[in-house]
Design a protein around this nucleic acid. Structure first.
Lengths: 228, 228
DNA sequence: CAGAGATCTGACGGGTCGTCAGATAGTAGA
DNA sequence: TCTACTATCTGACGACCCGTCAGATCTCTG
């Protein structure tokens, strides 16, 4: 979210000593960010050393610290940049889909795909965000919440509409349901690689997610209100 | 899972130099484990230092390294011990519940509670397991899979029965559905504290999870097979 | 081309890690 | 009880990474 063109107004773009970077400084900063991103593809989060980033960028570690207080802050800058794109990509299938009747199932498939695809495209960085958020780093928590909140809000709208159209019991809480579904989507997407038990293919997971979403108040369920 | 009474047969209980610990050694090992567990309540995973564990246990750091190759291994020993208890607690509501008709909703509530309660009782250690697994540590991945797999297998059985009883379309994949539901349950349970957006109470999350489960093939859904 | 300010760097103190040789404590047997 | 063996413990150490700072180097302006 921090890609403003006016450095002087963006505190994140100031060098640590408070000065606003000029042309050369900005280039160095960008280079450091790019190298951080590159290294993340081959190195795990915990093993990411400032020394390595600096060497990769052809500078001394001290230069790194001129632009970022620590390695995590560089990762946060990358993460922030991703949040904007992510929010849009994730809500796109929610917004543009037809939620009428059984068309809702196609919409659910599209939502599942959006999550799986986005995580696949940015697996390393998303893992860092998940990880740092779980570790308790408030900056990454905010970042993660911002990303998922975009989706949760949009999903809550759809859920509310579906409920009000009579597809679910009145006492269904759209927001809580949205949070639960987002948890499912993000968690499956994050762990798609190998954490879950083997023997279940990604396609099957996708289908299962779509079905679970479809059978939630997101899609069309007509017996729930009367059975409980 | 490593609580065998016969140390000589359990490689995990050997000191790092290969010798089997005697009475005093086992006591020290236990003390170190207990202190690790205690410190985890007040210290985050990343900030857990071997020096602190040793000081808490009244020994030198070198003594710690006599029983564990590193701090993570001590955490793994704690985690392993938890897996057995966890597996039982999580599948208990699955096994003992009545899945007939609308009683299934009560069963879904019980399952949601089991996850939330278990994570609440062991939040610090479960966070470590999630974290280390996400970081890629294979030992913790196995540990986590073992815990959740116990549940997934049991859930797959119930889902298969429900599907075969005609409550879901034939093409529903019970195992994939189980994996997806487990992801939802564990993720919501893990992030219950504050990672998800504020404004949604734990009770609402519990209800939403129960409803999602109930509306999945776990409970009774009767329109899905014909709408797609 | 001189000066000012921006940028970069080598060197350093501080902290944690994991190891090792040797000190100490417990114990079995005479 | 004494001795000798072994389990257990420890202080000291080298290696590594962190983040800082004074001063060198570069860039641009006037």
């Amino acid at each position: 979210m921090t890609t403003a063109a006016e450095p002087s107004e963006n505190p994140d773009l100031r060098a640590v000593d408070g000065r606003v970077p000029g042309r050369r400084g900005m280039a160095t900063r960008q280079r450091l960010l790019q190298c951080t991103s590159d290294l993340l593809e081959t190195t795990s989060y915990r093993d990411l050393k400032v020394v390595d980033i600096a060497r990769e960028a052809g500078t001394s570690p001290a230069t790194f610290y001129q632009y970022f207080p620590d390695a995590e802050s560089a990762l946060l800058a990358l993460a922030d940049r991703l949040v904007g794109e992510g929010g849009q990509r994730l809500i796109q299938p929610l917004r543009s889909a037809d939620w009428q009747g059984s068309n809702a199932y196609l919409a659910c498939e599209a939502v599942a795909d959006a999550f799986l695809d986005f995580w696949a495209d940015h697996s390393a960085l998303m893992a860092v965000i998940d990880l740092a958020a779980l570790e308790g780093d408030q900056r990454f928590r905010d970042c993660r919440i911002q990303l998922l909140n975009t989706f949760t809000v949009a999903a809550t709208e759809v859920l509310t509409r579906q409920r009000d159209a009579g597809f679910a019991a009145a006492e269904v809480d759209p927001e809580a349901t949205a949070v639960v579904l987002v948890s499912m989507l993000s968690h499956v997407a994050a762990h798609q690689l190998g954490i879950t038990q083997a023997g279940v293919s990604l396609e099957h997971l996708r289908d299962a997610m779509a079905r679970v979403m479809y059978n939630s108040p997101l899609g069309k369920t007509d017996t729930f209100g009367t059975t409980i």
